[in-house]
């Protein structure tokens, strides 16, 4: 497959979807400032004070993000942050010069597909949130050896399990059935990824599903685990 993808950190730069996003969000009148901050230099005078976005998210002068879970748009922003991380990771995995020699043919198919799925998830949240979305995050992958099969697959396992536990733990903060269903549509795909990566690491073992109940981690636990891979600090309040 000959595909092109966004750059590593780039969230959606695509045109707005044809259908009315505001109708989806069901928050009439919400027009956002969040996106404006993404492109501003940190020296801009208007950024000297933290800015609150319509979603409830607060973006600090250092790029730090505070998400307010009393506003369910910020629960989506939380998912958007994690999908940005995953998408950036898999884009870099597949783009690595040794990708074709580091991984077996079936593993390449798996990793390309997962890259596509995570880019889809990221761009979906970006489009759905529109002006309410948090800025692009900066991945920090210095500890990952992208030319090493085990390093990549172990990181993939960490991210996929983390994603599953994050969606499972954040669902309780959603207020609308529409968003809950959307999160549900995505979390089971993350679980399919986790199962696949785990089986590739330990074939035909029981590792694809290590427990009868998956974890449902708090945002704090998830962000502590994800923190080392993201430059900007992310904090969740009102959980």
């Amino acid at each position: 497959m000959n595909t092109t993808h966004d750059d590593v950190s780039g969230a959606a730069t695509h045109p707005e979807p044809a259908r009315n996003r505001r109708e989806f969000l069901r928050f009439a009148g919400l027009t956002g400032a969040a996106v404006a901050f993404a492109g501003c230099s940190s020296g801009s005078p208007e950024l000297l004070a933290p800015a609150s976005t319509p979603s409830g998210a607060v973006i600090g002068v250092d790029g730090s993000v505070t998400l307010d879970f009393s506003n369910e748009l910020d629960v989506l922003n939380y998912a958007y942050a994690l999908e940005q991380l995953e998408a950036a990771f898999y884009v870099q995995v597949v783009a690595n010069a040794s990708f074709g020699t580091t991984f077996a043919a079936n593993e390449q198919r798996v990793l390309r597909d997962i890259r596509d799925h995570e880019v889809v998830h990221r761009n979906f949240f970006a489009a759905a949130l529109g002006s309410n979305k948090i800025p692009n995050l900066t991945p920090k992958f210095g500890t990952i050896n992208f030319a090493n099969r085990t390093s990549v697959l172990e990181t993939a396992k960490t991210f996929e399990d983390l994603g599953v536990s994050a969606y499972n733990g954040a669902a309780r903060y959603l207020k609308s059935a529409e968003y809950l269903t959307l999160a549900g549509k995505i979390v089971s795909v993350e679980a399919r990824h986790a199962s696949t990566i785990r089986d590739i690491l330990n074939p035909r073992s029981g590792d694809f599903a290590p427990t009868a109940f998956d974890l449902a981690n708090t945002p704090q636990t998830v962000l502590t685990a994800a923190g080392p891979f993201i430059v900007e600090s992310i904090t969740v309040i009102n959980t």
Partner: peptide, 11 residues
């Protein structure tokens, strides 16, 4: 939901 995702792993 913690069962739902396990079914996804099985699948």
């Amino acid at each position: 939901l913690t069962i739902h995702s396990v079914e996804g792993r099985h699948a």
